[in-house]
């Protein structure tokens, strides 16, 4: 589904140049906790969140997020808008709640997709820890 179709479905305001709204969205992820986005988010997802801290853009770049929709009427500040435009990360906002926003998109066929980690087998890390008292 194109981001501009999502914009209509969720009656969004948008803060990015219109060309960025032509992005194809394959997966969505919803969370207010950046730690959860980093742990469970799938690369390339559209993120739905109520969090507007400036770290959202770093997380978006780390995970190559396709865009961010702020829910519950939250709006990004001017710095975030300007930086997002430079980095070509589309920003939108809706007055809808997170649950309703997700429900509308789910009903239209969009899915969350598995997180990158869940696709893998059990991680096989060698952990060594030393504490000096």
């Amino acid at each position: 589904m194109l981001l501009k179709e999502i914009k209509e479905l969720l009656k969004c305001n948008w803060y990015s140049s219109e060309e960025l709204l032509n992005k194809e969205i394959q997966y969505c992820f919803a969370a207010d906790l950046m730690s959860d986005v980093l742990r469970y988010g799938r690369t390339g997802s559209l993120l739905m969140t109520g969090l507007t801290s400036n770290q959202i853009l770093q997380v978006a770049e780390i995970l190559d997020l396709s865009g961010i929709i702020f829910v519950r009427g939250k709006k990004p500040d001017e710095n975030i808008i300007a930086t997002a435009e430079l980095r070509k990360i589309p920003l939108l906002s809706t007055n809808l709640l997170l649950f309703d926003s997700c429900g509308i998109l789910y009903a239209q066929g969009l899915r969350g997709g598995k997180s990158n980690l869940m696709e893998n087998d059990e991680p096989k890390s060698n952990v060594q820890s030393i504490v000096h008292d």
């Binding site: 980690l117 991680p123 890390s125 060698n126 952990v127 060594q128 820890s129 030393i130 000096h132």
Partner: peptide, 11 residues
């Protein structure tokens, strides 16, 4: 730890 192949921590 989950994303790395080897992880070590010393404190």
């Amino acid at each position: 730890k989950n994303n790395a192949d080897v992880f070590e921590i010393e404190s």
